[in-house]
């Protein structure tokens, strides 16, 4: 079963939850895979002492124009949906704007003069780590300046090739394409929020998006005790299961920011994470894997 950990708002504790679920399951002898899909700022792996096992580039094909064969007919530009080909026929000027290219290959199909070749351009990397010989950690890591992490996220999720009971997908924040491509791969989504106006506002957006996608989901309220009761009223009204509350606690924050898995220190928290996940597996686990 695949579980995605997501939130609209950044900094609500997605990675905190993902790494603690991973750890709690590990300690209870489950085979677990953790995929850090937050390709713009992956930091889940840092919580585990492990060595890199494998790393590969995620590439996209970008057109290269052969100026000797190009007739400046502009057909490639007409085929391009992303304004990635700049052409001025009167002065015989053509340039590919690589940042705008989505690698769809339409320009190559358009060109009847053989003037378009393709070259691979790296978008980022997928790194794989192995823990205790049987648990896989996968990290999506995009290059600076790349427009969208989606291809790297997809490649990272595809890289899961260990037998597992649970694969935990740590989603990027927001509710746009990176969030959608991560949660789309999951059987169940845990939305992490906090009881603040920002937390609620972004939770609503995530809930609306997941409903549209027909996903099953529940909510973890992190930093419980902070803010007000509006998040509780909202999830009650929407009939969304409250999976777990994590108290607003200085000690937890201090351990986490020192790169320590809180579940390693507090068996109570580990137990909570484990029991919550077990319940999710029992209730929603038989829909796919």
């Amino acid at each position: 079963m695949k579980i995605a950990i997501a939130s609209g708002k950044g900094g609500t504790g997605k990675t905190f939850v993902a790494t603690n679920i991973f750890y709690a399951l590990l300690k209870n002898n489950h085979s677990v895979v953790l995929v850090d899909c937050d390709a713009e700022a992956p930091d889940s792996i840092g919580f585990f002492r492990t060595k890199i096992e494998n790393s590969f580039d995620v590439v996209q094909k970008v057109p290269v124009i052969d100026l000797n064969s190009c007739t400046y007919c502009s057909k490639c530009k007409d085929y391009c949906n992303y304004n990635a080909i700049f052409i001025l026929p009167p002065i015989k000027f053509i340039q590919v704007i690589e940042e705008l290219c989505h690698g769809c290959g339409a320009c190559s199909v358009a060109c009847t003069f053989g003037a378009i070749k393709e070259k691979p351009v790296s978008l980022g990397k997928v790194n794989t780590y192995i823990l205790n010989g049987k648990n896989q950690l996968i990290e999506a890591c995009m290059n600076i300046g790349v427009m969208s992490p989606v291809q790297i996220i997809k490649a990272a999720i595809k890289e899961i090739n260990y037998k597992y009971d649970i694969a935990v997908l740590d989603s990027p924040p927001g509710t746009s394409c990176p969030f959608i491509h991560t949660t789309a791969a999951a059987d169940f989504v845990i939305l992490v929020t906090e009881p603040t106006p920002f937390g609620l506002s972004d939770l609503k957006q995530s809930v609306e998006t997941l409903k549209e996608m027909n996903k099953k989901f529940g909510v973890i309220i992190n930093r419980a005790g902070l803010g007000n009761n509006d998040v509780y009223k909202y999830i009650k009204y929407e009939n969304i299961p409250l999976l777990l509350e994590i108290p607003f606690d200085k000690e937890i924050a201090a351990l986490y920011s020192a790169g320590i898995i809180v579940s390693e220190y507090y068996s109570e928290i580990r137990k909570n994470f484990y029991e919550m996940t077990k319940k999710i597996m029992e209730q929603y686990g038989n829909c796919g894997d």
């Binding site: 992303y82 304004n83 990635a84 700049f86 052409i87 001025l88 009167p90 704007i97 705008l100």
Partner: peptide, 18 residues
């Protein structure tokens, strides 16, 4: 190019450069 999804800049350069 006011409301295009992506690449408004290059498309606008094209317009003025032409």
């Amino acid at each position: 190019n006011k409301d295009v999804e992506e690449g408004a800049g290059p498309a606008s350069v094209n317009l003025v450069a032409s």
